[in-house]
Amino acid sequence: MSSENVSLWDEFFKGIGRMNPVYVLLLGLCSSLAITTRMENAIVMGIGVIFCLVCSNIIISAIRRFVPEDVRIPVFISIISGFVTLFGFIARAYMPAIYVALGIYLPLITVNCNLYGRAEAFAQNNPVMPTFMDGLGIGAGYTLAILGIAFVREALGFGEIMFQDLAQFTIKILPFQVGVLQQPAGGYIVMAGYLISFTYLSKRKERKRKEDIAEERKRTMENRVKGVN
């Protein structure tokens, strides 16, 4: 594998892990919390974000040399909005029930901080190929993150996982429902749970690494002392 390929895959995986848009960058929180009452909604939202993010990223990267600095905000945002409108048509035609369930949050993909954020931070400075991988990675990271939230909220909040539009099945998970998770507060509660766990784990990992380094240093020091003697 050439080094170029390695770096392209790195652009992809950074969005899922160390630069996860929801849990690390804390961007796009609105939709992550608003539409995660059902996994089905989260899947469609995720597809929408990936589609709009990748397409707008490619266009913005392609025209990056021709956009004057002063008008970049309106230009970028109209490109994004165009793809969001397009996705709205597709969703309304093929998944009418989910289109209704997503409500205003589907058109609001336009102002999902991730889309404008990537345009500003990455697409306007990078060639098309890395930009494509970057968009794909950030979109996938976003989708995985909201699926995680939606799974907890639906499984505990409704006691079942139910698909109606994309597929048709219902999996019973619990004999009871934790009502609060279906409500707005549930979004914050589950988000807080994930965020705190991830922060706690990464802090612990960091501490452990520091301890390991200290240990290693101590051992080398001792060996050196022994060697001298």
């Binding site: 804390l26 609060v180 409500q183 707005p184 507060a185 979004g187 914050y188 509660i189 988000m191 807080a192 965020l195 705190i196 922060t199 706690y200 802090k203």
Partner: peptide, 22 residues
């Protein structure tokens, strides 16, 4: 606590308000 500083604790507070606003 260390892991709670900044946004995590703010989200917990927001959850409290969100429940109260119900």
């Amino acid at each position: 606590p260390e892991s709670m500083k900044g946004v995590p604790i703010a989200i917990v507070v927001a959850a409290g308000f969100s429940m109260a606003f119900r």
